[in-house]
Design a protein around this nucleic acid. Sequence first.
DNA 1: CTGAAAGCGCTTACAG
DNA 2: CTGAAAGCGCTTACAG
Lengths: 354, 354
Amino acid sequence: MMRGCNPRLQDVADLAKVSLSAASRILRGDQASFSPAACRRVAEAAQQLGWRRNLLVSGMQTGRTGTIGVVIPPYDSFWVSVLSGIHTRLAQADVLPITVWLGDIEHMPHFEAGEKQGVDLMNRLLDRRVDGLLLWPPFALAYTQHTRELRDRRVPVVMIDYHAEQAMCDTVTTNEGGAMRAVARHLHDLGHRRIAYVGTYETPSRAWATERRRSLESQLEGLGNVSYQTWRLNREGSDGPAVASRLLRSRLRPTAVVTATDHEAIHVYRAAGEQGIRIPDDLSVVGFADLDFAATMTPPLTTVRQRATEIGMRAAAQVLERVERPAPQGPFLPIRVEADLVLRGSTGPAATLD
Amino acid sequence: MMRGCNPRLQDVADLAKVSLSAASRILRGDQASFSPAACRRVAEAAQQLGWRRNLLVSGMQTGRTGTIGVVIPPYDSFWVSVLSGIHTRLAQADVLPITVWLGDIEHMPHFEAGEKQGVDLMNRLLDRRVDGLLLWPPFALAYTQHTRELRDRRVPVVMIDYHAEQAMCDTVTTNEGGAMRAVARHLHDLGHRRIAYVGTYETPSRAWATERRRSLESQLEGLGNVSYQTWRLNREGSDGPAVASRLLRSRLRPTAVVTATDHEAIHVYRAAGEQGIRIPDDLSVVGFADLDFAATMTPPLTTVRQRATEIGMRAAAQVLERVERPAPQGPFLPIRVEADLVLRGSTGPAATLD
DNA sequence: CTGAAAGCGCTTACAG
DNA sequence: CTGAAAGCGCTTACAG
């Protein structure tokens, strides 16, 4: 008899008058081995009882739970779109994401995972036997360093926006070099020869920040005859307004500023406003990411559009691929996604040099 | 011997030289029943082998998986904060959210779940034996109507922003009445006597929209001497610009507009700009939600701040409470969360009537 | 205080 | 073509 509120496979088998194992196999699609009549009876019985496979159990049996752990917060519209891509792609494979993160999203301007907490979080996912893991940069270090606890559990991992010399997993990143070439050319074509970069604090796990800055640097070097300076925010990013303000007061004020993300461009806009510097007449500004607010800034922000949804979909596809065909030793795939310079109102011809 | 990559409890028991059941009970905290020496050996063995409980199995055994299904997309900053509150509260109880949604978040301005898809989605969560469900309004109908498939599975559900006459689960909603009283008074105090409301399309599952509109209506009636009109967007919300434009061209143009959410306020701003109507000099605008962009609009939007994080935390707390103490027949709790009118630059004294 | 045994709800060789 | 049996990795009465 049925017990509890969920019918068991045994109930279905009883009603269909077949053995438990027959019911199991028929419902898994092994119709060829059984008589059409038996198959029909089982299908009807399952339907009638409202039987649904207990995925906890079959996950235990088969080693597959059909879940992917996602350690990515909906931090801003870039990451929301990444998540959206992940969800879309996983749903196609009937896989469920378990999304977790640390800390309060409201106070997460420049979050860095404590290593211990990061390991705990990933372990909690692994304890649920997720089939794979999708990580954002702050967890990169915790993952790579806790070999025994994490890597030895043989769960495929794909990291987004993180790229190490010595790869320990697949990665999906933006083609920073290509993006910055477009930015450098654009500004150079407009006549800018004094260019500043406002970067975020750089840590090993924030590899994208380092790569983004270096990409611009090398592109500008390639163009020649450009003076270049880098400014950098503190770890929490809390000195954004101060840095922007100082930058614009500096002796040889740049004619163009490139920022690590659109977030920093806001500070530049504000500082410019306070100092009576007009954008784009006196100062050109280029952001990065094309966050949701970029197009509605005044003036609309010229920025590099990261293909966030594509990044999410590629990452999800890749982790599913590794679930299907494990390759714990690598070689690991560094997937690069293109980005597109979006020209808007914040860039214009360089003002005549003073 | 150990097999696979995850040590089993048997391995721990062997190493500690106790029985399997002793190891199980000691590791679950039943230290009192065993000798200190045994407890120590077990703890050390588990530590040494890096054993971690397989939560799939214990979930099957105990009927608790320590997961909550969350059917809420990070649709805008309100829902992101709700999610953040949910995550924070669940994390305190060491419970993991499994968050899923339907469709592409980019094309989700006014999403309505197909009923069949909604049921499928919830079933996929239930098949993983989530301990409870947190739903956003578009899934309300699918849930209430599929009794056999969903409700009979006896999983506690808390709905956010949905409130039915005939409650079938606990709900967490904003105190719309209180919020609208503050809005009505504010506008009335400023001398506004011709007020319009721009609402969204109303469907049974979008109960908040109906309640929000009615709340304003009844508050304005209470104040007397106010002429009032309601405009409503189409199902997809795609005619927002057109509606805003028509509204401002209407014969007796209102001196103040209240919008269902901050999203619609954007359309009003734009239409006003196009028609040379100044905010707040010629027209006051009040939004609802206090989304992330509200404070940086020009002028900054006066709006009702919904306590999104609190809503998320209360909902999570309530579903956890129901997991602990089930009450499938109710009575169900209608939890109301206060909201706060935030005065900013988009409201001012009514222009002298023409 | 401790262990042998049954059971959770399935899957999967294996034997007929 | 089909079923009895062992097993997945745990938990939990139950018996000593």
